[in-house]
């Protein structure tokens, strides 16, 4: 069951960017004047950005800061259960941004997590921003790794760094970025800290023609490796445009019902063929 993302390039022409935006809660620093919040109406946009992450890491706060909207923010896991969409323009280019329900992993079962997984897997956004909690990095990294196994068009927003500072926790951002192979930006979205850097990273990933390859799954079981390779070949034959056949093969070996359904009704291929990612 695929959740199609809007196709770029449709919609009205962009409004003149009103730097600073109209929202009373603007927390963005003045350097961010290349940003124009476009609220619900992104006008004409070239890129689609998805916001993923564990529950309660500040995804909706980032979303609100970028779009000027007021998506519900609350201090508990589970307040966002459906996706919300909005827009912003940065450096004169339009972006559509999708706020997703929190998810611990792409392998689990509840309906709100399915929403997130379907968008990431089948919607193929140009940039997936994984918002992680700097004070609980171990808990957040499994999702980052899973997203990285699907795509290389990823930016990690290391959010809540203000809380991390208060707790005396420091995260080596450069080391993390090197290990993950994608930009990592420290942010405190509630005060607008780091958002200019985040925007720059989003722009860079959205416009690159040469994104890093998806992380290859490592497992040391030769039997399993053989099975994955066999099945991945068949997946590639059936869905030629799918970039992460090994990942799909592994999910099928595990009997993931969501992926099986997507194979059965062909939506795995549909979404993959006219890829949203090619528009950048």
């Amino acid at each position: 069951m695929a959740t199609p993302l809007p196709t770029p390039g449709v919609g009205r022409t962009p409004e003149p960017p009103d730097a600073g935006g109209a929202c009373a809660s603007c927390a963005l620093a003045p350097e961010a004047t290349r940003l124009a919040r476009l609220g619900l109406d992104p006008g004409r946009y070239s890129h689609v950005v998805a916001l993923a992450g564990n529950p309660n890491t500040g995804k909706s706060t980032v979303f609100n800061a970028l779009t000027g909207l007021r998506q519900h923010v609350g201090n508990w896991a589970g307040k966002t259960v459906a996706r919300a969409e909005g827009g912003f323009s940065y450096g004169g280019v339009g972006y559509r941004i999708v706020d997703l329900p929190g998810t611990y992993s792409l392998l689990s079962a509840s309906a709100d997590e399915d929403v997130a997984r379907d968008v990431l897997l089948f919607g193929r956004p140009d940039v997936t921003v994984v918002v992680v909690d700097a004070t609980r990095l171990e808990r957040n990294l499994p999702l980052v790794l899973q997203v990285r196994q699907i795509t290389g068009r990823v930016v990690v927003a290391l959010n809540l760094v203000d809380e991390a500072r208060r707790h005396g926790i420091t995260v080596d951002v450069r080391h993390l970025a090197r290990e993950l192979g994608v930009p990592v930006v420290a942010t405190a979205a509630r005060r607008g800290e780091g958002l200019p850097d985040l925007l720059a990273a989003i722009e860079q990933v959205a416009t690159t023609d040469d994104p890093p390859a998806p992380l290859r799954l490592v497992h040391h079981d030769p039997e399993l490796e053989r099975a994955v390779a066999t099945l991945a070949d068949q997946v590639a034959a059936r869905f030629p445009s799918l970039p992460n056949t090994r990942w799909v093969a592994l999910r099928l070996l595990e009997g993931d019902p969501g992926i099986e359904a997507a194979v059965r009704d062909g939506s795995l291929g549909d979404q993959a063929a006219p890829t949203v990612g090619a528009a950048g």
Partner: peptide
């Protein structure tokens, strides 16, 4: 299965 995975999700 799922229950194990959920526990691992929680760290």
């Amino acid at each position: 299965g799922g229950a194990r995975r959920r526990l691992m999700d929680l760290g």
